[in-house]
Design a protein around this nucleic acid. Structure first.
Lengths: 287, 287
DNA sequence: TAACCTTACGCTGGTCGTAAAAATA
DNA sequence: TATTTTTACGACCAGCGTAAGGTTA
C-alpha cells in the first residue's frame, strides 16, 4: 500500500468530496480521483461511495481512516521531532577534551549554549580523544598538537582554536625566575626535569635535542597540579603549556617565557557532522 | 515529509547499508542514496553517518527510526484489515426484506454464509426498503414489484430473484375451494375482500378493474396471518402471494391458483456495492 | 444551472538505472 | 582488491493538468 495515497484518502474522507480534497491539496479533481481509484483497486474493496453530493465512506473506508489518521499523526510527530533537532530544542553532543582545555575553555563556552542542548563532557588525552571521535563515541574533540604530528584521517575535520605557548616552570628562587625576556631552552640543560604525558615527553625530547642536550628526567606525570608542587619544592623544572598554568595558577612557582614552538589547540569532529546542528552549535561557541 | 522515503530510510537503517537496503528493495544503490539525500535535506539534519562499512544512525536518525517503525506497523495493520474485508473475515451487511421474504428466503441463505460476515436483518415493505438502500441505511434490499411499477433510480442495481404467483385464498367450504385449474378473478367479483398494504391494494384494484369489477373491500391488513384467520371465518376472500402462504401455511383456508400476473421478487443494492465483498457474498447466497 | 463525478489524453518531472570516480579497510 | 560510497546523466513512466461528457439535485 502506497502511504501517500493513504494520506490523500484521509484528506478526501475528511473533506467530504474529491473536489474539496483537491482544492485542499492544491490539485485538480481528476488527480485525486485517480489516486482513489488506484487505492481502491489495490485494496480490493470499495472505500468510497460517490454521489452528486460528494462521497461517503464504506465500512472498509471507515476502518481505513483510523489507520490513515494514525499514520498522519506519526508523520507529524516525526517532523516535529526532526525540527526540534534542527532548532536545537533537543539533542545531545558528546564532547571530549584534554584536562586543561576541559578546565579553561569548555565551561565558559557551554555557558553560552542553550541549556536545551545536552552537552556531555569527558576528559581524554588527544590520541584517545581522536579515537573516540573516529569511533563515534564522542562527537567533538578538543585536542592539542605539536609541530611534527602526523596528519589526521581525512574522515575528520580539524579546526585550529588557538596557539598555546610553552612556559618554563621554575621555583621562585631559581636563577631564571626573574627573567622577563624569553629564555633559551639550553639554559635549563643542567636541571632535573619532569616529563608529562608520552606525547609531551616526546615533544620535550625533540626540543631539547634541538637545543643540544638530553634532559635528566626524574619524574613523570601529566597532572599539572602535581608538576607545579614538585617544582615549588625545587625538585625539578619542566615545560608547561600556558593553558595548564591558567587552569591552576600556582604562586609558588614561576612561569618564564621560553623560545620554543607553541603547541596548537584544535577541535576535531567527523566530516559528516559538519551539518549536525548540535555539533555546529558547540563548535561555534568554542571557536 | 514524504512517507515513502521514511519507509526507505527504515529499510536502510535496519539493513545497515545503502546497498543492502537497495538489494532488499530490488533497486540499485544510487536510487536509495538519492532518496536518503533528499530525506536528509528535507529534514535539515543528518540522519546517517556513511562509512566504508555501511551506515550508522545519528541521534536524529535513531529518533526518526522509531517513528518509521510505527508508520510501517500501521500500514501493515491497515493492509491486514483491508484484506480481512476482502476475504470476508470481517465486515457487516445491513439487509432489509419484506416480511414473508424475511421469513422464507433469508434464513436458509444466511445459514450458507460464513459466520464471520455479520449480516443484520430488518423488515420493511418495498418502498421503505428501497429508500433505506438509497440512503445507505441498508446495503441490500429484498423487494417485490408489480407489472407497472416505475423504474428504480439508476443508482440502484436490481437483480430478479423469483416470480411469486398470487393465489386466491378462500374458506375451506367455499364453492371454489376444490378447483384444481386456475380460476378467473371475475369469479370472485361478488365476494367481500381483504386488502393488504397500499401497493398491494393498488395492484388488486388494477387486476379487478381488468377483470371487470370493483372489489368490495371490507378489511385492510398486510399481516398474512391475520388475513388467513379472517378468511377462515368466511368473512372475506383475498389474494395472497405464494411466498406468504409458504411463510404461514394455514390448513383452515384454501389457496387456489388464479389467472393473474405474478409479482416479481428482486434484490436491490447501490451500484457501488457491486464490488463490496460482503454485499457480493450475500447476493450470491440469495440468488 | 450548478455541483459532483468520470474518462481520455498529452506533457512534465520525479525517480530509477547505468557508468564512472572516490574513499576505506 | 573488494566493498562501500558519491556524482553525472539519460530514459522511462507515474501522475498531474486540460478538456469533454455524464449524472443528480
Amino acid at each position: 500500500m502506497d502511504p501517500r495515497r493513504l494520506l490523500i484518502f484521509r484528506t478526501v474522507a475528511r473533506s467530504g468530496s474529491l473536489s474539496a480534497a483537491a482544492a485542499e491539496l492544491g490539485w485538480t479533481q481528476p488527480a485525486v480521483g485517480q489516486h482513489m481509484q488506484r487505492l481502491e483497486r489495490e485494496a480490493g474493496v470499495p472505500l468510497l461511495l460517490r454521489s452528486a453530493r460528494g462521497i461517503t465512506l464504506t465500512e472498509a473506508g471507515t476502518a481505513l481512516l483510523v489507520h490513515a489518521d494514525a499514520v498522519a499523526a506519526r508523520l507529524a510527530a516525526a517532523d516535529a521531532e526532526l525540527q526540534d533537532f534542527a532548532a536545537l530544542r533537543t539533542g545531545s553532543v558528546q564532547l571530549v577534551a584534554f584536562p586543561s582545555a576541559a578546565a579553561v575553555l569548555v565551561p565558559p563556552a557551554l555557558a553560552k549554549l542553550t541549556p536545551a542542548l545536552d552537552v556531555r563532557l569527558t576528559e581524554a588525552e588527544p590520541p584517545e580523544a581522536v579515537a573516540q571521535v573516529l569511533a563515534g563515541t564522542a562527537d567533538v574533540g578538543i585536542v592539542f598538537g605539536y609541530a611534527d604530528d602526523p596528519p589526521l584521517p581525512t574522515e575528520l575535520v580539524c579546526l585550529p582554536l588557538a596557539s598555546d605557548p610553552l612556559r618554563a616552570v621554575v621555583p621562585l628562587d631559581h636563577r631564571l625566575a626573574r627573567r622577563r625576556r624569553p629564555i633559551d631552552l639550553a639554559e635549563l640543560a643542567d636541571e632535573r626535569w619532569i616529563a608529562g604525558c608520552p606525547r609531551c615527553e616526546a615533544n620535550l625530547r625533540r626540543l631539547t635535542t634541538a637545543a643540544g642536550f638530553m634532559p635528566d628526567i626524574r619524574h613523570r606525570t601529566d597532572d599539572y597540579v602535581v608538576v607545579q608542587r614538585l617544582v615549588a619544592e625545587s625538585l625539578a623544572v619542566t615545560l608547561l603549556p600556558q593553558l595548564a598554568l591558567t587552569a591552576a595558577p600556582a604562586p609558588t612557582v614561576r612561569a618564564v617565557p621560553v623560545r620554543t614552538e607553541p603547541r596548537s589547540i584544535a577541535l576535531v569532529h567527523r566530516v559528516e557532522h559538519a551539518l549536525t546542528p548540535g555539533v555546529q552549535a558547540l563548535v561555534a561557541v568554542l571557536r
